[in-house]
Amino acid sequence: MKLRFFVMLLAGVFFTSHVYASKKNSNQVYMYGVAASFNDSTVYFTDIQQLSSAWIDHEGFLYSRDNYSYQLKDYLAKLGFSHATCITTYSDNRKDIEKKYLKTKKKYTTVKGKGKDKNHYTVKYITSSGFAYKPIVPDEQEIEKANKKANKKKARKQKQGE
């Protein structure tokens, strides 16, 4: 009886995590990038871009998110803006990403201080026709590894709940 229960529990965990994985992995994501340098007062903003095949892991993180920032950094290096620090922000909700975009943009475009103080940043915009993020999809081993990790995590949670 315990064996049957254990097998059913394991099958349920596998099925729900597999459904969760397939539902969560390939998503539509909105993202934008910001690039700045400590050596320069120029700040670059990309447009908000929509990626239809971005990969989100089980914990809600964008797979290989640092490589999206490197895509922007490489693009700017080709333009002669080397040593840029790039940040890529993402969300699966268009309204959320627009709020984040406006908040970040406000930090660099708002004039601070009284009357005569001016903004110290030169803001430049990169259009989607100039630069577009390319989706990064994990290989089969990475997907399998992520699914195993999610299965173990779910099994632990269910075991603690008993």
Rank of each mutant, 00 (worst) to 15 (best):
K23E: 12
E59N: 01
D96F: 05
D96C: 05
Y101P: 09
V123F: 12
K107S: 09
S64A: 15
F14L: 13
V111W: 01
K95Y: 08
V29G: 03
G33F: 03
K78M: 08
F131H: 04
Y30K: 09
D139C: 10
R156P: 09
N67T: 05
M1I: 02
K107Q: 10
I97W: 07
S22P: 03
Y133W: 05
S26C: 14
Y20A: 07
L102R: 10
H83G: 04
E140K: 00
K154W: 15
Q49E: 08
T110E: 12
K105N: 10
K100L: 11
Q141M: 13
Y90V: 01
Q71F: 02
Q28P: 00
C86L: 02
C86F: 07
S22A: 08
L102W: 04
T104W: 02
M1A: 05
G60E: 03
K107M: 06
S128N: 09
Y121R: 03
G115Q: 11
V29L: 08
F15A: 14
K134R: 07
D96L: 08
Y90R: 01
E162T: 02
M1E: 09
K149P: 05
K148I: 12
Y108F: 15
V19I: 15
E98I: 15
E144Q: 15
Y70T: 06
K145H: 06
K157E: 13
F14P: 01
I143E: 00
K100R: 08
E142Y: 01
N39H: 00
V7K: 13
E59K: 09
S41Q: 07
K116A: 14
D66R: 01
G33L: 14
S129L: 05
S52N: 15
M1V: 09
V13M: 11
I126N: 04
R65S: 15
D96T: 14
K149F: 12
F15H: 02
K105T: 05
S91P: 06
K78N: 05
F15K: 00
T122I: 15
V29I: 11
G80N: 09
